[in-house]
Design a protein around this nucleic acid. Sequence first.
DNA 1: TTCTCTCGGATATTTTCTATCCGAGTTCAT
DNA 2: ATGAACTCGGATAGAAAATATCCGAGAGAA
Lengths: 160, 160
Amino acid sequence: MKMSSGVEWALHSCVTLSQSHEPVPAARLAELHGTPPAYTAKHLQALSRAGIVHSTMGQVGGYTLTRPASEISALEVVQAIDGDEPAYRCAEIRQRGPLGIPSERCSRPCAIARAMTAAQDAWSRALAQLSIADLAVDIDADSNGTAMPDIRRWLTTTRS
Amino acid sequence: MKMSSGVEWALHSCVTLSQSHEPVPAARLAELHGTPPAYTAKHLQALSRAGIVHSTMGQVGGYTLTRPASEISALEVVQAIDGDEPAYRCAEIRQRGPLGIPSERCSRPCAIARAMTAAQDAWSRALAQLSIADLAVDIDADSNGTAMPDIRRWLTTTRS
DNA sequence: TTCTCTCGGATATTTTCTATCCGAGTTCAT
DNA sequence: ATGAACTCGGATAGAAAATATCCGAGAGAA
C-alpha cells in the first residue's frame, strides 16, 4: 500500500500556485521543485481534470488554482492524483468456498470490509480538514516566514 | 494507493484459525476461502515471519495462532502482509530546486509529510483497536450465529 | 498571418504485485 | 528403526501497474 510519488509533487505545486495569481507553466513548477518536467506535467493534467487547477493555453499560459487555496483540501489533491477508489477492495471471500454465503444474504458489506472502510474514512477526514492554505502557512512557518515570499519573488523575477 | 489482495485472505485466515486449536494446513485454508493454494501459502509465511501464526511441520502440521485472537490486532495482520512502511514517503522536495532549503535547516519533517503521517496514524489507530476476536464476533453476528460453528464443524469433520 | 509557447493524450521502460513450482524438514505409521 | 507421506519455506516465471518520456493539437501574441 504505497502512494504515488506524484502526490507530493502535486501538493507542492498547489502550494506554489497559491502564491501566484498569474498562470504558472508546468515546466516552471518542475524547475522550482526539481522534478522531471514531462512527468510533472502529466500530474498537473490530472489536477486539471479534477477541477482543482485551470489551464490556460498560449504564450503566457500555465496553471492557476480554480478556487481560493483555503477551499481546496489536501484530500482532493491526493484523490485527483492517486484515484478515489478505496485502498481495500473486498473480493467477497465469504461468498466463496464450501461455506460460501449466498449473495442474497449479504445485504451489508463484510465485517472486514466495514473495518477497512472505517479506517480509510478516518484517514480521509484527517486530510479533508486540511487545506492548501493551511499547508502554505505551515511551510512558511517552518522557514521563519521566508519560504512563501521567496516563491513569490522567484515566480515574478526569474526567467528561464 | 491500493492494498494487497492478500490482506483480505490473511484476515479471513486468522479469523478461521481463531476457531481451531489444532494446526490447519495452508491448503485447507485455501480450499475453505476459495483462494489460490500456492499464493495463499505464501501470505501465511509472511504471517509466520511476523510472529502472528506458528507453523507446525509434519503430517498433522499446519498453522495456529501464536496468541489469543483478542490480542492480535487487525493492524498487525495488515502490516505483516502489506509492509509496515508508510504509504507516503517524503522525497524532500523542499531541499531541491533553486529555492532548496539546506538540510541542516530541516530538523523536523516537511509540513506535507507531517500531515500525511497524521492521516496514516489515524488510519492505524482505527485498525489497531480492532482485534481478530472482534472480527470473528462481527462476522458471526452477520450470519445470525451460524458462521463460526460452521467453520468449526468443517475444520473437524471434513477431510479432503 | 505567422510564429512561439502552452497543454493534452498516446507511447516505451521500469518496478511491483500476482501466481506458481520444487526442495528441505518433520511427524506418523509400519 | 525405517520408510513414506505430508508439511512449510524460499527461489522462480508471468502479469499488471506505475514511472517516465515524446510528439501532436490548440491558443494567444507579435
